[in-house]
Amino acid sequence: MITIRREVCGYCGACVSVCPSGALELIDAYLSVDSVLCKPKCKLCSTVCPLGAILRSEE
């Protein structure tokens, strides 16, 4: 699972474009995550983020 640091997020959508499961969506200026679709071991969104706004919690 991931945690979005909303005070850091620049709502740019880079994370949405690399998510293979379609778990992320930028709704207006609000990044939402679908916890059912989000894959536990994946960290692509957290890697690509220009600001470091997505934290991956350890399993």
């Binding site: 959508g13 880079a14 474009s17 690399v18 692509l44 890697t47």
Partner: peptide, 19 residues
């Protein structure tokens, strides 16, 4: 719908960008 495009993905087209 730009970089964060979801529409085409919903319609069944793979738009995922590799890292």
């Amino acid at each position: 719908d730009g970089i964060e495009s979801k529409f085409a993905k919903w319609a069944g087209i793979d738009t995922t960008i590799p890292l």
